[in-house]
Structures are given as structure tokens and as C-alpha cells.
Measured scan of single mutants.
Amino acid sequence: QVALSRTQVCGILREELFQGDAFHQSDTHIFIIMGASGDLAKKKIYPTIWWLFRDGLLPENTFIVGYARSRLTVADIRKQSEPFFKATPEEKLKLEDFFARNSYVAGQYDDAASYQRLNSHMNALHLGSQANRLFYLALPPTVYEAVTKNIHESCMSQIGWNRIIVEKPFGRDLQSSDRLSNHISSLFREDQIYRIDHYLGKEMVQNLMVLRFANRIFGPIWNRDNIACVILTFKEPFGTEGRGGYFDEFGIIRDVMQNHLLQMLCLVAMEKPASTNSDDVRDEKVKVLKCISEVQANNVVLGQYVGNPDGEGEATKGYLDDPTVPRGSTTATFAAVVLYVENERWDGVPFILRCGKALNERKAEVRLQFHDVAGDIFHQQCKRNELVIRVQPNEAVYTKMMTKKPGMFFNPEESELDLTYGNRYKNVKLPDAYERLILDVFCGSQMHFVRSDELREAWRIFTPLLHQIELEKPKPIPYIYGSRGPTEADELMKRVGFQYEGTYKWVNPHKL
């Protein structure tokens, strides 16, 4: 086992960053958080920038500027975001240094004079007029057009580079997404736009490419001749908990499936790229999406959770019991969808996408189930092999396979070949997804960000279904809070070829 401390991990990262040409360590950078008073800024962006600063992973002359409508001070920003920093008493001095680099400007999102004030403020910072500028839009999409237009007109660096990070949702359907994309691309070049999907920053999602293309053993079996089906799962054990009003506007397909799960599907299904260059990788992902037809209604199961009468606390409440959810809402909190990649490698292999709230566990994984062994000599005792990439929690890679049961006879039983990170790298604290992705933006690497043509294809696949749901308002199937979801989803999976045995229990190697 390799035991690495946080300091050692960050030392390795620093070495990698400083050796590259793309990370300008000594240049002045300004990180501007648009929507600095909001939840995302408070819980994710400010803490992430602090962790990067604490670990010495930001360029040395980096300033952080918050911008929002609320009249706040840096002290206010500190008060609301610091509880999420997880700072230790030993880091007190470092924390003071961090907040000394912070400033805040209040202004409207659609007022040109406010942006001119913001620009004057940035120019007044040390070497601010020639600094590289990175704008993070932690804002609702309704203000994107006004904000990007004003940034472009008043706040661009004339000497350094300018980059803009856009948070999902990128529209509600193909038409609104196209409108937003066309607007942003009329102001910024594609190499300046970073559409963030934080799932692409997760260690195991990034590991998929290495697993596939750096190991000879997987190449020959990664196709329709050997793989019976692919299941991509995202499960949350909690409901909307008072935030249903926002969720109800989008629903589970827009929230998770059309982005996170579809991105994971691309990494499983794509061909080997010409290189690890950002556009070479994204070219292959677009090719996969172009091979997927629009979702067919007979390959869809929609569910909505109801309270568990035997549960406790939140578990007793259904989705419609959330006071922020519109009365009688038919918005799905669970969806199972089957897609097919219609190309030579994957023809006929079902890709089953499942996601839901208020389920029995927290889990995100990719599961490849292989065909049955031909010419069975073990009297149907063999179960199908599976390769599982567990994204969260407890990152893991393992192969479910058959071995001989101890004893006199040739009785096979299920076991696993474990390729888990935790076994080799004991207690290594890896940077989280937002840390990686923000560092990628500083480096100018777009590999783990969504390109406009990729986004367009993703919406093309799901828009007809979303429009049909909005028009017909089908009643989702009720499922109990804390269950596996509607049984109809299991029946759909069985119908397209997935075999669920229920006889195997994964042993978490992190707890051995």
C-alpha cells in the first residue's frame, strides 16, 4: 500500500502544474464570482478556492472578487462561507491571508454602469489591468444573457486571457439551449467557454479513460460480442427537503440524466481518441451522441416518491408533501431510460440510465454486464461477469466473477477481482471535483468540460421526450421513500436483457 498525506498529494500536483506551459504561476489572475451571495458560491466555490489557495495550487498573485446585487462586505462573505471551509486552528494565518486577497463589488446584473465599476475595481488591483480574468457564473440561467453581454462589453482583460465558467442547466430543451449557446458564442470563442459538469471532475469518471485505453485486457472485450448491457446509475437517499420548488422546474431527467449520466455513457462508449488533447476527446464523445436516436417512450419509466409510513423524519414525507412543490405536480423524481448506440461496436446493446431521489442508498456507478459463458459445464450455477466502476461513495473498480467454492467439488461461487483505489492508495485525500475543474480552467484544459456541439446532441436525444411529458403530463409511478424505485423499472431492465441475480454482496474494501 502507498500512504500519501494531503501535503504529498498537493506537492505532486504542484510539480505537475508548474512543469506545464499552460499554468502561468507568476502571472496575476483575477477570479470573479458572479452571484457571490448565492448558495453555490457559499457552499462550493469559495470553499474550493480556499482549498486550492491553502494547498498552494493557485497562481501566487490571485485575487478573488465577488459580485452580486446584495450590498455585502468581505466580512459578510466570510461569515456565510467559512463554515464550509473546514479550516483547522493551525490554518488561521493562512485564512487571514486568503481573505486579504478577497474583495466585493455590489451591482445589478443588467446595468452597464455596475460592470464599469467592477472593471475599475479590477484595474485598481495590483497589475489588475493586465491580469488573466476568470469569470464564474454562479447564477440562474435567466440572467446569463445580460451578464455575459455586460462582461464582454465592460470587463474583459485587454492583455491577459479571459475565460468564463457556465453552470448547468444549459437551457431547458434543445431550442433554449441553442439560443443560449448562440448568444454566448457570439461574445466569446469556444476556447474561452467552460460549461461545467462537476461529474466530469470526479476521480473515477476520469479513471474510465485510463482503464479503457491503457489496459490491453479490456480492449478486445469492450464491444457487443461480449457486453450484454451497460447500466449507469445515480441514486440519492434523500428527497427534495424543502427545495422542491427549484427541482420541480427541471425534474430528474434535466437535473441528472441528460448531463451526468449521458457524459458517463460517452466515456464508456467512445472510441479511442487520437490523443488526450481536449478536442480529440470531445470529438469522440460527440460521435457517440450522434449514434444515439431520440428516446422512445416505451423505453422510459418515470416515478415519484411517496412517504414511507414506517419511516422516520423526512422519510415519512412524499414529494408532494414538500411545501415548495406545486400542488398535484407530476414532475418525476425517478427515471429509467434505455438508449442504444447504433454503431458497429455497440449495435443492440442497451445502455440503461437510472437516477432518482429518496432511494435506498447513495450511489453513482457504471456497471457493464457481460454475456453468459458459452457451453456451460457447471449446471447453470454460473452468474454473469460484471465490471463495476463505483464513482461514489467509496470509489472502487471491481470485476464480479466466478471462482471455485472451497471444498471437494467443482462448485462455482461469485467473488470479485478488486482493482480499488483504496487498497493501493491508503487514506489518500484526493482533490474534489470542483478543485480539479477550476484548476483545469486556470490551465486552459477543456477536456472535462462540455463543448457546444456535445451539448446540442445531448438535448436532441431528450427534448422530444421532455416535450411529450410536458404536454401529456403522465402521472409518475409512486414508489416508497427509501425503496429501490418503481418495480416497473426493474421490469424494463429485465425486458431489454439485464439479469439481476441478487445473490452477490459487494464487500467494501475500504472497511476491511
Score class of each variant (00 low, 15 high):
residue 256 V to R: 15
residue 257 M to N: 01
residue 257 M to Y: 01
residue 258 Q to E: 06
residue 259 N to S: 10
residue 259 N to D: 14
residue 260 H to V: 15
residue 260 H to C: 15
residue 261 L to R: 01
residue 262 L to Q: 03
residue 262 L to M: 12
residue 262 L to K: 01
residue 263 Q to E: 05
residue 264 M to F: 09
residue 265 L to W: 00
residue 266 C to N: 04
residue 266 C to D: 00
residue 267 L to G: 11
residue 267 L to D: 12
residue 267 L to N: 13
residue 267 L to S: 14
residue 268 V to K: 02
residue 268 V to S: 03
residue 269 A to G: 08
residue 269 A to L: 02
residue 270 M to K: 00
residue 270 M to Y: 00
residue 272 K to V: 12
residue 272 K to H: 11
residue 273 P to N: 00
residue 273 P to C: 02
residue 274 A to H: 13
residue 276 T to I: 05
residue 276 T to N: 06
residue 276 T to P: 14
residue 276 T to M: 08
residue 278 S to I: 04
residue 279 D to A: 13
residue 279 D to V: 11
residue 281 V to E: 02
residue 281 V to T: 14
residue 282 R to I: 04
residue 282 R to C: 05
residue 283 D to F: 03
residue 283 D to W: 06
residue 288 V to T: 06
residue 289 L to K: 02
residue 290 K to S: 12
residue 290 K to T: 13
residue 290 K to Q: 12
residue 292 I to Y: 02
residue 293 S to H: 09
residue 293 S to E: 05
residue 293 S to M: 04
residue 294 E to V: 07
residue 294 E to M: 13
residue 294 E to H: 05
residue 295 V to P: 10
residue 295 V to L: 08
residue 296 Q to C: 11
residue 296 Q to T: 08
residue 297 A to L: 15
residue 298 N to S: 14
residue 298 N to C: 08
residue 299 N to W: 05
residue 299 N to D: 12
residue 300 V to R: 03
residue 302 L to N: 01
residue 303 G to M: 01
residue 304 Q to I: 01
residue 305 Y to W: 12
residue 309 P to S: 07
residue 309 P to R: 11
residue 310 D to E: 12
residue 311 G to Y: 04
residue 313 G to R: 11
residue 314 E to P: 13
residue 318 G to H: 05
residue 318 G to I: 01
residue 320 L to D: 15
residue 320 L to K: 09
residue 321 D to H: 05
residue 322 D to P: 03
residue 323 P to I: 09
residue 324 T to F: 12
residue 328 G to I: 10
residue 328 G to Q: 12
residue 329 S to A: 11
residue 330 T to C: 05
residue 330 T to M: 09
residue 330 T to E: 11
residue 330 T to N: 07
residue 331 T to R: 10
residue 331 T to G: 09
residue 331 T to Y: 00
residue 332 A to H: 02
residue 332 A to V: 04
residue 332 A to W: 01
residue 333 T to N: 01
residue 333 T to Y: 01
residue 334 F to D: 03
residue 334 F to M: 06
residue 335 A to Y: 01
residue 337 V to F: 14
residue 338 V to I: 09
residue 339 L to E: 01
residue 339 L to T: 13
residue 339 L to M: 13
residue 340 Y to H: 06
residue 340 Y to M: 09
residue 340 Y to E: 06
residue 340 Y to A: 06
residue 340 Y to G: 11
residue 342 E to V: 05
residue 342 E to D: 13
residue 342 E to H: 08
residue 342 E to C: 07
residue 342 E to L: 07
residue 343 N to H: 09
residue 345 R to T: 14
residue 345 R to H: 10
residue 346 W to C: 00
residue 346 W to S: 02
residue 347 D to T: 13
residue 349 V to G: 01
residue 350 P to S: 01
residue 350 P to C: 01
residue 351 F to P: 02
residue 351 F to C: 01
residue 352 I to P: 02
residue 352 I to N: 01
residue 353 L to Y: 01
residue 355 C to P: 02
residue 355 C to T: 08
residue 355 C to L: 02
residue 356 G to E: 00
residue 356 G to C: 01
residue 358 A to H: 01
residue 359 L to S: 06
residue 359 L to N: 02
residue 360 N to E: 05
residue 361 E to Q: 13
residue 362 R to M: 13
residue 363 K to L: 10
residue 363 K to F: 09
residue 364 A to W: 10
residue 364 A to D: 09
residue 365 E to H: 02
residue 365 E to K: 01
residue 366 V to N: 00
residue 366 V to G: 01
residue 367 R to E: 05
residue 368 L to Q: 00
residue 369 Q to E: 05
residue 370 F to N: 02
residue 371 H to V: 08
residue 372 D to H: 05
residue 372 D to A: 03
residue 373 V to R: 02
residue 374 A to M: 14
residue 374 A to D: 12
residue 375 G to I: 06
residue 376 D to K: 13
residue 377 I to P: 07
residue 380 Q to I: 06
residue 380 Q to C: 09
residue 381 Q to V: 07
residue 382 C to S: 13
residue 384 R to K: 12
residue 384 R to H: 15
residue 385 N to Y: 02
residue 386 E to Q: 08
residue 386 E to I: 02
residue 387 L to F: 06
residue 388 V to Q: 07
residue 389 I to A: 08
residue 391 V to Q: 12
residue 394 N to K: 13
residue 394 N to E: 14
residue 395 E to T: 13
residue 396 A to L: 14
residue 396 A to I: 14
residue 396 A to T: 12
residue 396 A to H: 15
residue 397 V to T: 15
residue 400 K to V: 12
residue 400 K to E: 06
residue 402 M to Y: 15
residue 403 T to G: 09
residue 403 T to N: 11
residue 404 K to D: 10
residue 404 K to L: 15
residue 405 K to G: 15
residue 405 K to M: 14
residue 406 P to H: 15
residue 406 P to D: 14
residue 406 P to S: 11
residue 408 M to V: 13
residue 409 F to R: 12
residue 409 F to Y: 13
residue 409 F to G: 15
residue 409 F to I: 12
residue 410 F to M: 05
residue 410 F to C: 06
residue 410 F to G: 07
residue 412 P to Y: 14
residue 412 P to A: 09
residue 412 P to F: 10
residue 412 P to I: 11
residue 413 E to D: 13
residue 413 E to L: 12
residue 413 E to F: 08
residue 413 E to Y: 14
residue 414 E to S: 14
residue 415 S to F: 11
residue 416 E to L: 12
residue 421 Y to A: 13
residue 421 Y to F: 13
residue 423 N to G: 11
residue 423 N to V: 06
residue 424 R to H: 13
residue 425 Y to C: 12
residue 426 K to T: 14
residue 426 K to A: 08
residue 428 V to C: 11
residue 429 K to L: 14
residue 432 D to I: 14
residue 433 A to P: 13
residue 433 A to M: 15
residue 433 A to W: 12
residue 434 Y to C: 12
residue 434 Y to A: 14
residue 434 Y to V: 12
residue 434 Y to I: 11
residue 435 E to A: 14
residue 435 E to G: 12
residue 436 R to K: 09
residue 437 L to W: 07
residue 437 L to H: 14
residue 438 I to E: 00
residue 438 I to Q: 00
residue 439 L to P: 05
residue 440 D to Y: 05
residue 441 V to L: 05
residue 442 F to T: 07
residue 442 F to R: 00
residue 443 C to V: 13
residue 444 G to D: 06
residue 447 M to T: 03
residue 448 H to T: 15
residue 448 H to K: 07
residue 448 H to A: 15
residue 449 F to C: 07
residue 449 F to L: 04
residue 450 V to E: 05
residue 450 V to H: 15
residue 451 R to T: 04
residue 451 R to V: 01
residue 451 R to P: 02
residue 451 R to N: 07
residue 454 E to P: 01
residue 455 L to P: 02
residue 456 R to P: 06
residue 456 R to W: 04
residue 457 E to W: 01
residue 457 E to N: 03
residue 457 E to K: 00
residue 457 E to C: 04
residue 457 E to A: 04
residue 458 A to L: 07
residue 458 A to S: 11
residue 460 R to A: 02
residue 464 P to H: 07
residue 465 L to N: 00
residue 465 L to Y: 14
residue 466 L to C: 08
residue 466 L to I: 12
residue 467 H to A: 09
residue 468 Q to R: 12
residue 468 Q to M: 05
residue 469 I to K: 07
residue 469 I to Y: 14
residue 470 E to C: 07
residue 471 L to S: 12
residue 472 E to C: 11
residue 473 K to R: 10
residue 474 P to M: 10
residue 476 P to Y: 02
residue 477 I to Y: 09
residue 479 Y to C: 01
residue 480 I to N: 07
residue 480 I to A: 12
residue 481 Y to L: 06
residue 482 G to A: 06
residue 482 G to P: 00
residue 484 R to V: 10
residue 485 G to R: 01
residue 486 P to V: 10
residue 488 E to F: 04
residue 489 A to P: 01
residue 489 A to I: 08
residue 489 A to H: 11
residue 491 E to T: 09
residue 493 M to T: 07
residue 495 R to Y: 07
residue 495 R to M: 11
residue 495 R to H: 09
residue 496 V to G: 09
residue 496 V to S: 06
residue 498 F to L: 10
residue 498 F to W: 10
residue 502 G to P: 15
residue 503 T to F: 14
residue 504 Y to R: 14
residue 504 Y to L: 15
residue 505 K to A: 15
residue 505 K to I: 07
residue 508 N to K: 12
residue 508 N to F: 14
residue 509 P to Q: 13
residue 510 H to M: 09
residue 510 H to P: 12
